[in-house]
């Protein structure tokens, strides 16, 4: 059986909010190392991959592999009943028909309990190869969100060009063109404001802004975002979850080709 307790319901609320624009139904795969999720969006352009390590919970118990097939809009409805600071416990039997969610307020002696019906989801798992990316950029997550939203006013696609000079996000549309260039800089007082660029060779790729803007719904989960690029492979957009236990929310986006 599964029994996992999260100190802050907010984490799950935000993860579900961040992915529900891309994915309708998906399996939450639970085993002794934690809860994982992998799903393609409906148009098979993007892939979401989440890992919530057992260490993110206290306690965490899952002795068998259990797949919780969940409709995300139904889960969103249930999670609306959880206050952000509630303690959230997920429970399921070994071959479950439902997942049980309990929200506890430590201040108010209130316990809310919901059973969410599960569904059978026959989901294809994709193997994601280990990639040595040609460029990786770590930057403030809110800045990435801002850039994507601003450039979406100009065009439906953005080119991301990374050289030793910096990283340039550029868009060209009917009304004109726009670009934002970021150079590497460190902010000693506010490290979350730093921009770090790790480059082994120059990269230039184009992506659909609609998907990138969708990914940035995860902005409130982490102060930093990491973009990893290599020519001719999908972009990786990564948010760290719940600090320091290597839990993550990753989005992969296939590039656009031609012009």
């Amino acid at each position: 059986m599964l029994e996992s307790r999260l100190e802050q319901a907010d984490l799950l609320k935000k993860v579900v909010e961040a992915i529900s624009g891309l994915v309708n139904d998906c399996n939450f795969d639970c085993n002794d190392s934690g809860i994982a999720l992998q799903a393609m969006d409906n148009s098979h352009v993007a892939l979401v991959s989440m890992m919530l390590k057992a260490e993110a919970f206290s306690p965490y118990r899952c002795d068998r592999n259990i797949a919780l097939g969940i409709n995300l809009s139904s889960l969103t409805k249930v999670l609306r009943a959880a206050q952000s600071s509630d303690i959230l416990t997920l429970k399921a039997e070994d071959a479950p028909d439902v997942v049980n969610l309990v929200f506890e307020s430590s201040e108010k002696d209130r316990i809310s309990e919901y059973d969410l019906k599960l569904m059978d989801i026959d989901q294809e798992h994709l193997g994601i190869p280990e990639t040595e990316y040609a460029a990786s950029i770590s930057m403030p997550s809110n800045e990435f969100q801002r850039i994507c939203k601003d450039l979406m006013n100009i065009s439906e696609s953005v080119s991301i060009e990374c050289t030793k000079e910096g990283v340039k996000f550029a868009a060209a549309g009917d009304i004109g063109t726009g670009s934002v260039t970021l150079k590497q800089h460190s902010n000693v007082d506010k490290p979350e404001q730093s921009v770090e660029i790790d480059l082994s060779e120059p990269v230039a790729l184009s992506f659909s802004l609609k998907y990138l803007v969708n990914f940035t719904k995860a902005t409130s989960l982490a102060s930093k975002v990491k973009l990893s690029l290599s020519n001719e492979v999908p972009l990786l957009v990564e948010y760290e979850l719940s600090g320091g236990n290597s839990s993550y929310l990753r989005f992969y986006l296939a590039p656009k080709i031609g012009d």
């Binding site: 393609m40 798992h125 994709l126 986006l253 590039p255």
Partner: peptide, 14 residues
């Protein structure tokens, strides 16, 4: 305009 690639053309089923 440019062509959108599919993610499954990069990542193969396990």
């Amino acid at each position: 305009s440019s062509n959108q690639r599919s993610i499954s053309s990069f990542f193969t089923p396990k």
